[in-house]
Design a binder for these strands. Structure first.
Lengths: 163, 163
DNA sequence: GCGATAATCTCGCTCAACGAGATATTAGAG
DNA sequence: CTCTAATATCTCGTTGAGCGAGATTATCGC
């Protein structure tokens, strides 16, 4: 975030303006994504946190992880009270179901209901299709380049500094 | 977001699993970014909205737009009361200054203070440098591919459906 | 100048998220 | 095998971000 409104002082990050523009472009995409999430939330009587929770649960599902309340709270950065509140809201809307884990009966497993999945598909499906169409127009080598970029960027942002 | 835990039923979006994985990767990057923003906020006694506000103001600065309170509220999706509250918080922390516009004395122009810029650079600088390093390792043609992808994706996500 | 419009602020309220602590279940030491 | 520590979730009371409604101040067309 350089303050380049003073044309006489190039900041230390302005050395590669072309690459820096790509960074800003990436950030713009993340902002867009957040706005779409918020829009989906508002349109379905939810809060952004609730949408993030659903996404988190579907991710856990996809990764075959146990989708417990504790994991959800940790991923969302909420404390236990807030986590209970999120699950309460989603349960009240019929989007998730609480299921006692029979292996460890302290735990609550969360199942995303089909209705919520359908809702998400309706809203995000066209957007996902749009990106897939973009990717279809790319050559296999280009897709590989995109993958390398996203993987490396993910690695840069995923390394947490201080817990 | 397919529910592919039922191996017998491939959803309509699972036709290009390789490209779909790229979509999930992109989303993961956006999630990472959001987490870093929240982390920066918490570490500096701010809220995620305040950080988004600062980023918005710096973007406006970069684009040579007038950074008014109204514009800020519109970009953040806040009403006037919430916008005033955000600016109050940022002003109290000394991160922005309110400046009456002499051309239109109803308006408040917002200036991001150098201290806030320094704070942002300290935190996000290494992350940005990390992405720039990734880009430096790419050939010019590859960087162009990444740019094409990000630009097209931005276009997909930026088109707002219903205002 | 004067009503209409625009930009920002004030007041009161709601509810998401927090801290502290309660409850229930499991694991481990003796 | 019991008793204690650790773990997972929930309950209660509180704080504060953001909203709706309306006040305030400044601009513009007539």
């Amino acid at each position: 975030m350089p303050d380049n409104h003073e044309p006489a002082e190039p900041g230390p990050l302005d050395r590669e303006p072309d690459n820096l523009q790509l960074v800003h472009l990436l950030r713009a995409v993340t902002v867009d994504f957040g706005l779409r999430q918020a829009e989906f939330a508002a349109r379905n009587g939810m809060h952004p946190t609730d949408v993030r929770a659903l996404i988190c649960l579907l991710d856990a599902d996809r990764a075959a992880e146990p989708a417990t309340a504790g994991l959800l709270g940790a991923r969302l950065g909420l404390n236990s009270a807030g986590t209970t509140a999120v699950i309460d809201r989603l349960e009240r809307l019929g989007h998730v179901a609480r299921i006692r884990d029979d292996q460890d009966r302290r735990r609550i497993l969360l199942r995303v209901e089909p209705g919520a999945i359908r809702l998400g598909r309706e809203f995000f499906g066209p957007l996902i299709d749009g990106v897939l169409k973009v990717l279809d127009s790319f050559a296999p080598a280009e897709r590989h380049t995109v993958r390398r970029f996203l993987t490396a960027t993910h690695a840069v942002f995923a390394s947490g500094p201080r817990p």
